[in-house]
Design a protein around this nucleic acid. Sequence first.
DNA 1: CGACTTTGACCAGCGC
DNA 2: GCGCTGGTCAAAGTCG
Length: 416
Amino acid sequence: MNAFDGTYRGVRTCWAAPSSPSPRSLLAMLNQGDNNDVVDQINEIFPQTNHQPEQRSSLRERVAARVEFNLPPLETQNNRPFAAFFRNPSTTVPSPLVLISPGFSPSAMLQFPNMFIDPSHMILPSPVANGGPPEAVESSGADHATMMISNNDPMHVALPPQQVAAFGSGPTVNETDLINMEIDRKNEDEEEYKEDEDEEHNIVDELDAEPSSPKRRKFGESTMIGATRSCKSQRVIIQMETEENNPDDGFRWRKYGQKVVKGNPNPRSYYKCTYTACDVKKHVERGAEDVKFLLVTYDGIHEHDPPAARGSSSSGLKGQYSSSVSQDHSNHRTVPPSSSSASEALRLFPSSLDPPVDMTQFYMTGLAKLPSLPVNQNHGLMNWNVEPEIDRVIPDGTEVFKGIRDRLNLNFGLNL
DNA sequence: CGACTTTGACCAGCGC
DNA sequence: GCGCTGGTCAAAGTCG
């Protein structure tokens, strides 16, 4: 099996990262007297869609809710995929999760994690229409951010690799400058700093299967208090519907343990990357309520290329990737392969449209290179073999970026 | 024979 | 200190 033949239901990530602007800062900005139109400006720049649930709170309310820890419980429907892993999926824990605009693409956060890592920047909702339920996202904290994505995001299928490259990693634009609101974290006091960290702990606890598990708390602390605060502690949690117990993600793993954890009768398997000196680990477990769902948790970032696929005569990743890239993408892409940057983009961010999608490419070198996650917004499932019609959503990522840039420049005077 | 899996034991953190 | 829990170790077994 060269790629997941399962289907994604959602993605949750948490990575050791410096803070995003604190909610208090956002609220202060939103509450500024003559900046009362900040929300309007934001909404003008990133208009909300008709698909947005009416019960969705305003941006101000969402930020205020986060500040006051008075956050609405996650919608059951949203949680359902993850709830499949929990014994008591109906439990609504007082949540530090922030409901964000459905136009705010979680895939974008996956693709541009530095937006959250950079403490002096914030991210705004993307203009991408989204017909799915609201997303629950936590992105706060200085060194440990958690994000839960439990809805279906058309941007996952809508983001061509060239756009990802333009937004995320290429020389075209500094990702942290894309949407720069210049929230000065330095003005935040230490107490608030700790408060956000506590929220991060809470979110890890809540999102993980063991809300009261000391080990879970320990994980959060360890990733934050670590001497280096290395991004190696990035954690990516992927939930998918697959019958594979250990779907091939392109890397080679050695199973080193198996444990039945509390709340899930299905054992959790622990794997280590077999690459020399690579400390990346993952554990895989099936849902307690619905064994159809597989939860794969990656700890760390591979700082090496994936090995050649098992059984492949290819002599390594280059062969593997070159063959992938050399496939006929003409049906999906608008950027000619003659462009070196485009080729690089294709290598780093293979289109989600290219079947088969290999988890090697999904998790190749960490969050910063995560490509789009295709999700069928109609039923929350995405079959990799089903080709979404992305070109009607975002015909060209460069144009989208230019549009966002122009509007930011027009509305906020940001000269990107 | 090497790579990988299995599985019981062990370790460490946390709450009580 | 004790028990619970998640994570890890390592020897034995399995497989190609």
